[in-house]
Simulated assay, not measured.
Amino acid sequence: MLKTTLARIAHPVERILDRVFLRQAPTNVVIDPYLGYATEDEILLRGRVLTSLRRTTPSPQASWWVNLRQMAGLFLTREVAERTVCCGDHSAVTDDEGYFTLHVPRGDARPGWFSADVSVDGGDPVTLEALVASSAAPFMVISDIDDTVLHTGAYSLLRNLWTSLTGNALTREIFPDAVALMKGFEALDAPIYFVSSSPWNLHYFLLRIFDRHDLPKGPMFLRDLGISKTQFISGTHGDHKGAAIDALLAANPALPAVLVGDTGQHDPKVYLAATERHPGRIARVILREPGKGADRRDLARIAQMETLGVRVDHGPDYTDVSPELVRLAS
Score class of each variant (00 low, 15 high):
A109D: 01
S164Y: 10
V270G: 04
I145D: 13
A250N: 09
Y34L: 06
L44Q: 05
E129W: 04
L249D: 05
E306A: 01
N168M: 12
A250H: 14
L287D: 12
I174W: 02
P12W: 03
E276T: 14
M305Y: 04
K292L: 06
E173L: 07
T101K: 07
P12Y: 01
L272D: 02
L255S: 15
N67S: 11
S234G: 10
L74A: 05
H278L: 10
P290H: 02
Q24M: 01
L299K: 01
G261P: 02
A92Y: 10
G47F: 02
G73I: 13
T5A: 12
D317V: 06
L181H: 10
T152I: 04
L259F: 15
E173T: 13
D95I: 07
E97K: 08
F210C: 14
D295G: 07
A38V: 05
A294M: 03
H90E: 06
S134K: 02
L206F: 04
G264D: 01
P26K: 01
Q231Y: 08
E129N: 11
L6A: 13
R223L: 10
K217R: 15
D124P: 00
A251I: 15
R281D: 11
G153L: 02
L53F: 08
H203V: 10
L76T: 03
T101R: 00
A92N: 05
R46C: 08
D262I: 10
L2G: 08
S119E: 12
L181K: 03
G123T: 04
P219V: 05
L76E: 14
H314I: 04
L248F: 08
L6F: 15
L158H: 10
F114A: 00
K269G: 07
G261R: 03
T263F: 15
A10S: 08
V149I: 13
P216W: 09
P111W: 04
R106C: 04
I145K: 09
S143Q: 09
F139W: 10
I286K: 08
Q61S: 14
R106T: 14
A38C: 14
A274I: 00
V195C: 13
R288G: 12
D147H: 12
Q231K: 13
H240V: 15
L157D: 04
I233Q: 06
P26Y: 00
G235Y: 09
M1S: 13
K241S: 10
D18T: 02
A133H: 06
E173C: 09
T5W: 07
L2P: 07
T5I: 13
D262Q: 06
I209R: 09
V326G: 03
E324Q: 08
V195R: 07
M305E: 02
V310F: 01
K229D: 10
R8Q: 08
